[in-house]
């Protein structure tokens, strides 16, 4: 379960580049919720993700994951609670390490890095089985460097790595935005499958309204650092792109709907 309580964050305060990125964001996700987050450029979608991950400290407010206040923990100290997939497929994996080595790093998330072997033979067998579920043939390339994989393959692998050690919260930050439409659809399909399989509490940032509507049981729309729309359950299930556009224009004004949100 995730509780976000009145988060504020301003970048470059007191300079001409001052930007209020989060302006009092509060929401609560229940166990097993799959929440999509949508909004225009600069609305604060990725910023709220980074606040939850602890990329930097917030100015004020609290973030509580599964009953633990993590607001004062640094990025790597929060990692045990979180599974993360980034927009850039290059960021989620270590290119110059093998597939099995990458998975072993993820399997030890939140554990002390000891002087035991980085990857054991038993783990390799286990990884092969997990990789088979992706249906990308990666199980045959366990010792290949991740840098040799395509963007879609790397993103799928990152998704596995984010979830192989069950996170309290899975954070997907526009994780299909850099992929071609076909690959993006496949990665999204895999995402749905994994989230359902483990009943993971999930937040997925997307700029694609259709994806935001098609996935999950809750939808949050952000604008200028605030949550402007929050729909769930029955209402979310019935939502259409037109409804959403209409609602958004109501709260944020006609000009704030970006082409990117409508067209893609």
């Amino acid at each position: 379960m995730l509780e976000v309580i009145d988060i504020h964050k301003t970048f470059n305060p007191g300079t001409i580049n001052e930007k209020v990125a989060l302006n009092g964001v509060s929401f609560t996700l229940n166990d097993g919720d799959f929440c999509t987050v949508i909004g225009g450029n600069g609305a604060g979608k990725s910023t709220i993700m980074n606040a939850i991950c602890g990329v930097w400290p917030v100015d004020s407010g609290a973030i509580v994951i599964d009953g633990n206040d993590v607001s004062g923990l640094s990025e790597h100290e929060r990692a045990p609670f979180l599974g993360r997939v980034f927009q850039d497929p290059m960021i989620g994996t270590a290119a110059d390490m093998q597939i099995d080595e990458n998975m072993a790093l993820a399997a030890r998330r939140g554990e002390q890095r000891t002087l035991r072997w980085g990857v054991t033979a038993a783990e390799r067998e286990q990884y092969k089985e997990i990789l088979k579920t992706l249906d990308l043939g990666l199980e045959e390339r366990l010792t290949a460097k991740v840098g040799l994989l395509s963007g879609g393959q790397r993103q799928a692998l990152t998704l596995l790595m984010a979830t192989m050690k069950r996170p309290k919260l899975l954070l997907l930050d526009e994780h299909t935005a850099a992929l071609d439409p076909k690959t993006a659809a496949k990665v999204l399909e895999t995402t749905d499958k994994i989230v359902k399989q483990h009943n993971l509490t999930t937040m997925m940032v997307t700029h694609n309204m259709r994806d935001a509507i098609a996935h999950g049981n809750r939808l949050i729309m952000m604008n200028e650092g605030r949550i402007v729309i929050d729909v769930k359950g029955e209402e979310k299930a019935k939502l259409t792109v037109e409804d959403l556009l209409h609602k958004f224009e109501e709260v944020a004004g006609r000009d704030s709907v970006s082409d990117r949100m409508v067209l893609s």
């Binding site: 790597h76 990692a79 290119a95 390490m97 000891t114 002087l115």
Partner: peptide
């Protein structure tokens, strides 16, 4: 041996991709 251990792997990951390493809970 050392660079093949969990700790050594964490050092290598830190050098290759610090952002990913932190996301995996490594104290970079």
């Amino acid at each position: 041996w050392y660079l093949g251990t969990e700790q050594g792997s964490a050092i290598r990951a830190t050098g290759i991709n610090p952002k990913m390493s932190r996301a995996q809970g490594i104290n970079t």
